[in-house]
Amino acid sequence: MKKRLYLELENCIGCRSCLAACTQCGGHEERNRNYVYDVNPLVNRQTMPLMCLHCVNPACARSCPAQAIQIHETGAVLSALVEKCIGCQNCTIACPYGIPKFDTEQNLMYKCDLCIDRTKNGIPPMCASVCPSNTLQWLTDEEIGNRKKQFNLDNGKWVSSLPYLESETNVKVNLPGILQGIEKLF
């Protein structure tokens, strides 16, 4: 059954285990391809991960003059093909989330490929495998749907159902506020 990367930002504890794990995939040249930010530095300890959302119609690939950014049949937006990437960095500008990273020495863009060697075989990506706080999870659409129901608010709006800049994404995100719709046990 198809699973997706699913994010609940409110759970993030800032441990950056996802960054460390990204280097351990086996296919990432031991360089991490994701980000964790302090949301309110100098104020509190809230953090959030920024992962590639694997857009259905990705700006990075659209902007690539060399067609170096391929989309896998699973929907994963892959890292630039070494033989095609011309190092123009269009993608790093085009991506509204600032995901693609650039290696100036190799003159090559690299980005999250959703651990394609794993996920194409139904194995979870490294980041979601290790995430200690369940900020990053690897779920079926049904499981994501159940969570969506759980986080329903009285006003009928799901707190995280915001339209993204790039509209439909393969990765699903839940913004802070997941506890607003929770009914307390007592």
Partner: peptide, 10 residues
Amino acid sequence: VGKMCPKGVT
């Protein structure tokens, strides 16, 4: 269940 902190991963 597979989870590790950054110390564990490295």
